[in-house]
């Protein structure tokens, strides 16, 4: 009964840590003694430590996927408690939703039809439209949003949303207007509105793609700027104005 209590488990774990530290020190002194010291340490520390030692996972007995999940969530790989700008924590950032799971395709893996349909359906269902329909906002604001890569970064240098507005990161991957250098992971959007017109269908399509591009392109590299909450409906309208407004440098 004593062995099963959480406090005992905690004590066992800390004993293990201490023992581990000692064995590491010993190991440095004598090559031959190293594996033995590691194996023997928990027993020497306390019999209580034995179950904990037995529970210690053997990485080689796990599938690559299980081990990856273990390293991310159980092996103190990440700061799972780190606060995020959206008020959640590091763990929430790392837990995959259904689209992320379906789209984590490894080399040589292809999305099967059933998964594609599911991803597209989930994406379509996620899209929320502004009351009063899709309208263009302020292209000048949209220009800055398209340029900015600020926001939602955490790790060692968290972005402070009080000090800076999160941007759309569009230029990271797209060439848009020609006055600034964009990336080319995504297609060029130069002359977007001029080339496509600003009909109702085109506006809806563009809104959808910014909000959740998986609705059209299952497992695209592009982030879900609306569905993830990075851009508000109003901000999407601004970015769309940047793409469609005849006065925007994109269409000059």
């Amino acid at each position: 009964m004593f062995k099963k209590s959480p406090i005992a488990a905690l004590a066992a774990a800390s004993l293990l840590l201490i023992a581990g530290g000692c064995s590491a020190t010993n190991a440095g002194k004598s090559e031959a003694a190293k594996p033995a010291a590691v194996a023997a340490a928990p027993v020497v520390a306390a019999p209580v430590a034995a179950p904990a030692a037995a529970a210690k996972v053997d990485y080689t007995k796990m599938s690559a996927k299980d081990l990856a999940e273990y390293l991310i969530f159980e092996a103190e790989g990440y700061d799972l408690k780190q606060a995020t700008q959206e008020g959640t924590n590091g763990r929430a950032r790392l837990v995959q939703d259904e689209i992320q799971k379906a789209c984590s395709l490894m080399k040589g893996q292809e999305l099967d039809d059933k998964s594609r349909e599911k991803v597209m359906a989930l994406a379509t269902a996620s899209i929320k439209y502004p009351e009063g329909g899709i309208k263009l906002g302020d292209w000048k604001k949209g220009r800055e949003l398209a340029w900015s890569g600020y926001g939602y970064r955490t790790a060692h240098n968290p972005d402070d949303h009080e000090k800076g507005t999160p941007g759309g990161n569009c230029y990271n991957c797209h060439q848009i207007a020609t006055d600034r250098t964009g990336g080319d992971i995504g297609p060029s959007l130069t002359g977007y509105g001029k080339n496509r017109g600003a009909g109702e269908d085109m506006l809806k399509y563009t809104y959808d793609v910014i909000y959740n591009p998986h609705a059209y392109f299952a497992c695209t590299n592009m982030p879900r700027m609306g569905a993830s909450g990075v851009l508000s409906q109003k901000q999407i309208a601004d970015v769309m104005a940047y793409l469609f407004d005849p006065e925007s440098p994109v269409n000059k």
Partner: peptide, 20 residues
């Protein structure tokens, strides 16, 4: 091998705000 293979899974594993 186990660590390399888990690293490969992590390399392709999409998550967080931008699905990267």
């Amino acid at each position: 091998k186990a660590m390399r293979d888990a690293g490969e899974v992590m390399f392709y594993r999409r998550s967080a705000t931008m699905d990267f």
